[in-house]
């Protein structure tokens, strides 16, 4: 057989190779009545990722196994799945470390979303909520010739929110989402937080009406699942808390923003 995983890898790595038992949830709505688990035996090295394993199955054993992938280094957000009961990006997840004592890893699609095929889920509601919070900045009408002045501290406050890759791991771990898709969800609330906190944004009040409102921050039960699920170690719960507090003092916050924007083109201290 073509030695896919070790092709181009070093001899020591090949020597140490063992195999893993990869259990994957399969479901093609055109053919199957309900989802079922299928097990594949996959060779591995200490560096094999769970994505490598899926890729091996697809290439060597069953080309119909379906999953999303692209960047393979945890930046595009394509490959979030449920591995051994918790959500993660399979491209940065080490396979040997994911095995139980019997050498098994179980991979399922992200929970609480309709399955399109195998590990591919339908994220329509996820993207609708993202759009609902108006993820775009609405800057002041008169742009300066150069940049708006934003201090490193102001950047630090929103920096981590900006690194969200919209993979959906948090969304699919959220108990509130499990109960209903009208909740905005941690991903979109984090985005809303990013915009609300950005000194350049001119509509924080309007944003707080949505994200601080009934379908937003108030719905969060602070169960912290999103924090545990986030493969980028972000903290949506804290952002949601901030939105909730700001919504309570919306008018004052809008005034502070208007005040801040008067000096947006002046050097920060």
């Amino acid at each position: 057989m073509f030695d896919f995983l070790s092709f181009g890898k070093t001899p020591e790595m090949i020597k140490k190779r063992k195999t893993a038992f990869v259990r994957v949830q399969r479901f093609n709505p055109d053919e199957d009545e309900k989802p079922y688990i299928q097990e594949f035996e996959v060779p591995m090295t200490p560096e094999t990722t769970v994505l490598d394993a899926l890729q091996y199955v697809k290439t060597e054993l069953d080309g119909s196994l379906t999953f999303r992938k692209s960047c393979r280094h945890a930046i595009c957000g394509s490959c979030a799945m449920n591995v051994n009961g918790s959500n993660d990006l399979v491209c940065h997840r080490n396979l040997p470390e994911s095995l139980d004592k019997t050498g098994v890893v179980t991979i399922k699609p992200l929970p609480y979303l309709p399955v399109i095929k195998d590990l591919v889920v339908d994220r329509t509601s996820f993207w609708e909520q993202y759009k609902r919070v108006k993820p775009w900045l609405v800057p002041p009408e008169d742009a300066p010739e150069k940049e708006f002045r934003v201090s490193p501290e102001e950047v630090a406050a929103i920096n981590s929110a900006e690194t969200c890759i919209m993979c959906g791991a948090c969304y699919s771990s959220c108990q509130v989402i499990a109960m209903g898709k009208d909740y905005i969800g941690p991903h979109a609330l984090l985005k809303s937080f990013l915009r609300v906190m950005d000194p350049r944004d001119t509509i924080p009040g309007e944003r707080l009406d949505i994200s601080g409102g009934e379908d937003g921050a108030y719905r969060c039960h602070t169960i912290f699942n999103c924090i545990d699920a986030c493969p980028k170690n972000l903290n949506p719960t804290e952002a949601i808390e901030t939105l909730r507090k700001l919504a309570q003092r919306r008018i004052a916050f809008e005034e502070e923003r208007a005040e801040r924007q008067k000096t947006l083109t002046e050097a920060a201290d």
């Binding site: 800057p139 010739e145 150069k146 940049e147 950005d198």
Partner: peptide, 19 residues
């Protein structure tokens, strides 16, 4: 680059707030 900045891009900043 200034247009990106005006559209909301979160660049790293110098101490005086420039890109």
């Amino acid at each position: 680059v200034y247009e990106y900045e005006h559209m909301g891009c979160v660049f790293s900043r110098t101490d005086d707030g420039r890109i």
